[in-house]
Design a protein around this nucleic acid. Structure first.
Lengths: 393, 393
DNA sequence: TTCTTTCATTGACAGCGGAAAATAAGGGCC
DNA sequence: GGCCCTTATTTTCCGCTGTCAATGAAAGAA
């Protein structure tokens, strides 16, 4: 048995029947609900709900509120059932080439604490050591809550096999076939879930964000790259070969700039942060150091900068239209660090989307959500929560 | 009660439990299987399979073969379970603006008979009258088999709500909100399933074709238009607003020819039959009457015709790559009447796909299947078979 | 024949979820 | 305050499904 510094041994979730687990998930994401409403949403009888929630109350995962208000005038007042977020804690980590971001969340995936440690060596061994240290630190902080940390989620960009817990290929870390879940479990003693970063973010939206209650939606992230997580038939799409949601490599302009994938005019080659900087440089000759500067320039009215953002918005809008035309999602959530500059391309995203969406695909609801960087780590925590609830260990 | 000329009253399928229905579906699409193998594939115990198949044997939907060969050397020989295709008949219709295609199939969706009636009036009432006549004719023929016709499937291009049995909008027929399932049931007396034509074809591939056993694949049709049916997580994608799989309106070249959707350079504006004819005309000045002539021209080496097909192949390949990048299907089946000219653009499809597919999305298996026009009607029959089995009436 | 192996069925049983009846908890009304 | 009405929740009972373990079946091998 490898050394472990987890404060406590794992305690399993009383998952019970699949129906019970679905009941819990419904309460978790759809907020406090009466038992009757819960029965309706989970497609069960009231009696089944009563039975399903009993062990969950007994173990403290669910608690009951007096229904303060908004109750029907007549009849017995309903009691609201809700998840006790404080009943369990989780850790989420996002690995990048430069740093590890970590958060401590409660069971409702609310961030209690965020940390960042820089990364100098990208070799798996070094990253694992930093991971272990960050986890140790977060666990120490977690001790103050007097509640156990029940799982650790790790999000990595690239081709990740969540089922096996293996990072097949990560371009930024330059990893191939690293069995990260097993390695991290060994050094932390926690149950570990490993997933692709965009899919992890999508899980967070599905359970705790703008995707709650939807069985068909997409999350588009804009920042250093352009990514997309898809939920179809209520499940996150993973792709047969580990690749899915590559909206960044949808072609927008065959004569456009060269993309690192070898093609021209990919969304990412136009709308990702480096592409925008390159565009400004190319057109104005001005060397722009970073995104903040580019945004400043554009906000101050610089034509070249504005054009670069406008062009990016158009590319994103077209990419989203492509997703909408193919999958007909109910909603697309646009997010990512790039959204800090949302005012500079919002209009272009919407108009390009409206122009390129076919028929009633245009009825898709476009939403935007700012994405502070720790949200990526929160996505990882969401996968850990999901595993905790749905995978009885 | 409206008049009905269905030969016999409906007899329901002994669907039993969901598991039983899944067992039947497995046998239906995965051919003859031993009970043990069946248990494995359906994720059940052998005992459960024994119980599930009993009523199906009793009602004649399943029959047993002596396991002729390929049996393990040792132990009791297994018996093969298979669906008795002759146990039930189905009708499938495909409505176009010009004609109705109809087929009579058996329970295994094998075409027994195909018919076509021309259509002069596209009004719902007139189409319904022609439909009734064609169905009557097919039912008469079906009488010769001494087996009941258990359902009718109708495939229509456009926005179709299968659940409600309503054609929301059909551009070729110029229909809006026609409750076709109810209307057709009234005049034929048969249970009716109505679905979008490409989705119907996709169901046929999923249950009886190249998609058997796959939970993530796509069907791309090339012909008068370019369409796409998607199966994700084992289910056909319908889209939140009835639109999905619009690969035809994925942009390939923003400076390309104008598409009827209002955008430029859609796949359909480059690769559909009329687009190819237009391209040849535009470049060579030669007026090409129809697709046959265009194919002849290209096969005889005419440069303009060859270029038009080559360009079409490239557009299709790019469109497929977009689907592969977004969904990571295991396989894409390329089909449609346009495939008669497959030799003229096969190479371009493959190379454009390979160039534009990102990472391991390129591992997707591209298959081609010729598509005689009656296959569209067969797709409709497949939806009727699906409804018969999964929707206990 | 008898044993071994593999396939298939049977019967006892446990668990889940549904229906209906019972119980709980208000408010309104007299 | 007691009774009635309404709505929420629980209890009780019951059927159904699928599993487990044991048994039966049908070869070939010894």
């Amino acid at each position: 048995m490898p050394s472990s510094f987890a404060a406590h041994p794992a305690e399993t979730f009383p998952a019970g029947t699949p129906a019970a687990s679905q009941v819990f998930t419904t309460v978790l994401s759809q907020g406090p609900l009466t038992r009757l409403e819960l029965a309706r949403r989970a497609g069960l009888s009231a009696a089944a709900v009563t039975k399903a929630v009993r062990p969950l109350f007994a173990s403290g995962y669910l608690v009951e509120d007096a229904d303060t208000e908004a109750r029907s005038a007549l009849g017995r007042p309903a009691n609201l059932v809700r998840v006790d977020g404080g009943r369990a804690l989780f850790l989420g980590l996002k690995l990048t080439g430069d740093a590890i971001f970590g958060v401590l969340t409660d069971l409702r995936c609310r961030i209690l604490l965020a940390r960042r440690v820089p990364l100098t060596d990208r070799a798996a061994k070094a990253v694992l050591a930093s991971t272990a240290e960050l986890v140790r630190e977060l666990l120490t902080e977690a001790d103050g809550y007097g509640v156990r940390v029940m799982g650790l989620g790790i999000a990595v960009s690239g081709d990740v096999d969540r089922g096996e817990g293996v990072v097949r290929y990560s371009p930024f870390l330059e990893w191939r076939d690293v069995p990260l879940a097993e390695l991290a479990r060994a050094v932390t003693g926690l149950p570990v879930t490993v997933d692709n970063d965009v899919r992890a973010l999508t899980v967070a939206e599905q359970w705790f964000g703008a995707g709650v209650g939807l069985s068909n939606f997409a999350v588009v992230t804009v920042g250093a790259g352009v990514g997309c997580g898809l939920v179809v038939h209520g499940r996150v799409v993973a792709g047969a070969h580990g690749v899915a949601g590559e909206i960044g490599h949808v072609t927008v302009d065959p004569d456009g700039p060269l993309c690192h994938c070898g093609n021209r005019g990919c969304v990412e080659a136009i709308a990702a942060d480096p592409a925008i900087l390159a565009r400004i440089r190319e057109r104005s000759g001005v060397e722009v150091a970073d995104t903040t500067e580019a945004v400043d320039l554009a906000r101050r009215g610089d034509d070249h900068a504005r054009e670069a953002y406008s062009r990016a918005g158009e590319a994103i809008g077209r990419g989203i239209a492509t997703v909408a035309n193919l999958l007909g999602p109910e909603r697309v959530v646009i997010s990512g660090e790039g959204l800090a500059a949302y005012d500079l391309f919002a209009e272009q995203i919407r108009s390009a989307f409206a122009a390129a969406a076919f028929g009633s695909a245009a009825r898709c609801d476009l939403q935007t959500r700012p994405l502070p960087f720790e949200e990526w780590a929160r996505g990882a925590a969401a996968t850990a929560i999901q595993s905790f609830i749905t995978e009885p260990n």
